[in-house]
Protein backbone atom coordinates (compact mmCIF):
# COMPACT_ATOMS: atom_id res chain seq x y z
CA UNK A 1 0.00 0.00 0.00
CA UNK A 2 2.77 2.35 0.98
CA UNK A 3 4.65 1.68 -2.24
CA UNK A 4 1.52 2.47 -4.24
CA UNK A 5 1.20 5.83 -2.50
CA UNK A 6 4.86 6.68 -2.93
CA UNK A 7 4.68 5.55 -6.54
CA UNK A 8 1.69 7.75 -7.15
CA UNK A 9 3.49 10.72 -5.65
CA UNK A 10 6.50 10.07 -7.83
CA UNK A 11 5.07 8.64 -11.03
CA UNK A 12 1.82 10.57 -11.50
CA UNK A 13 3.20 12.38 -14.54
CA UNK A 14 3.83 9.12 -16.39
CA UNK A 15 0.43 7.77 -15.39
CA UNK A 16 -1.32 10.90 -16.60
CA UNK A 17 0.58 10.55 -19.88
CA UNK A 18 -0.51 6.90 -20.15
CA UNK A 19 -4.16 7.85 -19.57
CA UNK A 20 -3.95 10.58 -22.23
CA UNK A 21 -2.30 8.14 -24.61
CA UNK A 22 -5.07 5.59 -23.98
CA UNK A 23 -7.74 8.18 -24.76
CA UNK A 24 -5.94 9.24 -27.93
CA UNK A 25 -5.50 5.66 -29.06
CA UNK A 26 -9.16 4.91 -28.37
CA UNK A 27 -10.35 7.90 -30.40
CA UNK A 28 -7.95 6.92 -33.17
CA UNK A 29 -9.10 3.31 -33.38
CA UNK A 30 -12.76 3.35 -32.32
CA UNK A 31 -14.12 6.57 -33.86
CA UNK A 32 -15.49 6.22 -37.36
CA UNK A 33 -15.33 9.92 -38.23
CA UNK A 34 -12.09 10.77 -39.99
CA UNK A 35 -11.68 14.30 -38.54
CA UNK A 36 -12.19 12.82 -35.07
CA UNK A 37 -9.47 10.31 -35.86
CA UNK A 38 -7.07 13.13 -36.70
CA UNK A 39 -7.87 14.83 -33.38
CA UNK A 40 -7.24 11.49 -31.64
CA UNK A 41 -3.88 11.26 -33.38
CA UNK A 42 -3.05 14.73 -32.06
CA UNK A 43 -3.93 13.71 -28.49
CA UNK A 44 -1.80 10.58 -28.83
CA UNK A 45 1.10 12.60 -30.14
CA UNK A 46 0.76 15.18 -27.40
CA UNK A 47 0.93 12.43 -24.76
CA UNK A 48 4.26 11.22 -26.16
CA UNK A 49 5.63 14.77 -26.21
CA UNK A 50 4.41 15.27 -22.64
CA UNK A 51 6.23 12.09 -21.62
CA UNK A 52 9.57 13.38 -22.89
CA UNK A 53 9.13 16.85 -21.45
CA UNK A 54 8.19 15.48 -18.03
CA UNK A 55 11.35 13.35 -18.09
CA UNK A 56 13.41 16.46 -18.71
CA UNK A 57 12.03 18.30 -15.68
CA UNK A 58 14.27 18.56 -12.62
CA UNK A 59 12.71 19.50 -9.31
CA UNK A 60 13.35 23.16 -8.45
CA UNK A 61 15.04 23.51 -11.83
CA UNK A 62 14.54 26.36 -14.23
CA UNK A 63 14.34 26.79 -17.99
CA UNK A 64 17.68 26.01 -19.67
CA UNK A 65 18.64 29.59 -20.41
CA UNK A 66 22.01 30.50 -18.93
CA UNK A 67 21.98 33.53 -16.67
CA UNK A 68 25.30 35.29 -16.17
CA UNK A 69 26.53 35.25 -12.61
CA UNK A 70 24.02 32.70 -11.37
CA UNK A 71 26.27 30.08 -9.82
CA UNK A 72 24.29 27.13 -8.52
CA UNK A 73 21.19 27.30 -10.66
CA UNK A 74 19.70 23.95 -11.62
CA UNK A 75 18.60 23.82 -15.25
CA UNK A 76 16.16 21.28 -16.65
CA UNK A 77 17.47 19.01 -19.37
CA UNK A 78 17.44 20.87 -22.72
CA UNK A 79 17.90 17.81 -24.95
CA UNK A 80 14.34 16.39 -24.77
CA UNK A 81 13.05 19.93 -25.36
CA UNK A 82 14.93 20.10 -28.65
CA UNK A 83 13.75 16.66 -29.73
CA UNK A 84 10.12 17.48 -28.93
CA UNK A 85 10.32 20.82 -30.71
CA UNK A 86 11.12 18.83 -33.84
CA UNK A 87 8.31 16.37 -33.06
CA UNK A 88 5.70 19.15 -32.74
CA UNK A 89 6.63 20.67 -36.09
CA UNK A 90 6.63 17.28 -37.81
CA UNK A 91 3.28 16.62 -36.10
CA UNK A 92 1.68 19.62 -37.75
CA UNK A 93 2.98 18.27 -41.07
CA UNK A 94 1.24 14.94 -40.55
CA UNK A 95 -1.94 16.68 -39.36
CA UNK A 96 -2.02 18.89 -42.45
CA UNK A 97 -1.46 15.90 -44.74
CA UNK A 98 -4.14 13.86 -42.95
CA UNK A 99 -6.66 16.70 -43.20
CA UNK A 100 -5.86 17.15 -46.90
CA UNK A 101 -6.56 13.43 -47.36
CA UNK A 102 -9.86 13.87 -45.51
CA UNK A 103 -10.83 16.69 -47.88
CA UNK A 104 -9.97 14.52 -50.91
CA UNK A 105 -11.93 11.59 -49.46
CA UNK A 106 -14.90 13.91 -48.96
CA UNK A 107 -14.66 15.05 -52.59
CA UNK A 108 -14.55 11.46 -53.78
CA UNK A 109 -17.13 9.83 -51.51
CA UNK A 110 -19.20 12.74 -50.22
CA UNK A 111 -18.73 11.57 -46.64
CA UNK A 112 -16.06 11.51 -43.92
CA UNK A 113 -17.50 8.52 -42.06
CA UNK A 114 -15.43 5.38 -42.29
CA UNK A 115 -18.32 2.92 -42.40
CA UNK A 116 -20.14 4.83 -45.17
CA UNK A 117 -16.96 4.88 -47.25
CA UNK A 118 -16.52 1.13 -46.79
CA UNK A 119 -20.15 0.62 -47.80
CA UNK A 120 -19.63 2.57 -51.02
CA UNK A 121 -16.38 0.73 -51.69
CA UNK A 122 -18.15 -2.60 -51.27
CA UNK A 123 -20.88 -1.57 -53.70
CA UNK A 124 -18.53 -0.02 -56.29
Amino acid sequence: METIVSNFLGLYNYWAVVVLMMMGLYVLTAERNLVKKVIGLNIFQMSVIMFYISMAKIKDGTAPIIVDGARDTVYSNPLPHVLMLTAIVVGIGTTALALALVVRIHEEFGTIEEDEIQEQEGRG
Binding site: I39, K57, H81
Partner: peptide
Protein backbone atom coordinates in the same frame (compact mmCIF):
# COMPACT_ATOMS: atom_id res chain seq x y z
CA UNK B 1 5.42 24.64 -15.84
CA UNK B 2 7.90 21.91 -16.75
CA UNK B 3 10.50 24.52 -17.83
CA UNK B 4 10.22 23.78 -21.54
CA UNK B 5 9.61 27.37 -22.63
CA UNK B 6 10.56 26.87 -26.28
CA UNK B 7 8.32 23.85 -26.58
CA UNK B 8 5.52 25.81 -24.88
CA UNK B 9 5.48 28.66 -27.35
CA UNK B 10 5.89 26.35 -30.33
CA UNK B 11 2.93 24.33 -29.07
CA UNK B 12 0.85 27.46 -28.46
CA UNK B 13 1.56 28.76 -31.97
CA UNK B 14 1.45 25.50 -33.90
CA UNK B 15 -0.95 23.34 -31.88
CA UNK B 16 -3.44 25.90 -30.67
CA UNK B 17 -3.08 28.16 -33.72
CA UNK B 18 -2.23 26.57 -37.05
CA UNK B 19 -3.66 23.10 -36.50
CA UNK B 20 -6.97 24.58 -35.29
CA UNK B 21 -7.18 26.74 -38.40
CA UNK B 22 -6.47 23.70 -40.59
CA UNK B 23 -9.08 21.71 -38.71
Amino acid sequence: VMDAVDVAFTEAAVGAGISTILM
